[in-house]
Amino acid sequence: MAEIWNGFIRAIELIISLDPEVMEIAGRSLMISVTSALLAWAICMPLASLIHFNRFLGKRALINLIQTFYSVPTVVIGLFVFVLFSRAGPLGGFNIMFTPAVMVVGQTLLITPVLLGLTISALSGVDKSIVDTARSLGASGLQAAFVVVKESRFAVVAAVVMGFGRAISEVGVALMVGGNIKGFTRVITTAISLETSKGDLELSIALGIILIIIALAINLALNRIQQRS
């Protein structure tokens, strides 16, 4: 138990002293995961709208399939991305293996199902009467759809934050395709994995606490937004 207390003290020390290595790792974690979340949002918003506003055969099955992929293991995505982007793989020509770029690709892939599913739910959650009102005021189908998208925005932001949370907390993809290279692809989770394997539990705990603080800050910001709405 002493480790947890010492880890806590160490975390506070590292944060107050703005330890350059820890700050760099935390910054990189944020950058990669925020990029992944925004990228996934850019993919999911139009895709979710397409699925939600259209009636087609197998729609329910498709949504079920998307929801199944919520729980795809991170190492499976890591393996898949490794096989794709390894120099000998079909997308090896991009030459991005063991770079932050491939980590973004992997994390985006990882969180896309969650974001897609939640965005569809967000769109479904919009009050039906809003569509009726819009239509009765003479809005076209497309215009009514835009009204729905606009109304769903808070739930969509919540979905993006959820995706971000899954991205920043995963270690499978980051370790497998990033390689945990010091000063280049090392992020908080892979650093924790390495420090724990070195037996440096205090630093691991400190990094874990920093990760939780980041999550807390983002959630507080989100709550503020939702309260104001």
Partner: peptide, 18 residues
Amino acid sequence: GLLVLITMLAGLGGCAGA
């Protein structure tokens, strides 16, 4: 905007670290 700002700051931090 805040997210973008954080990302940019993080980018700066990364560069400074490098």
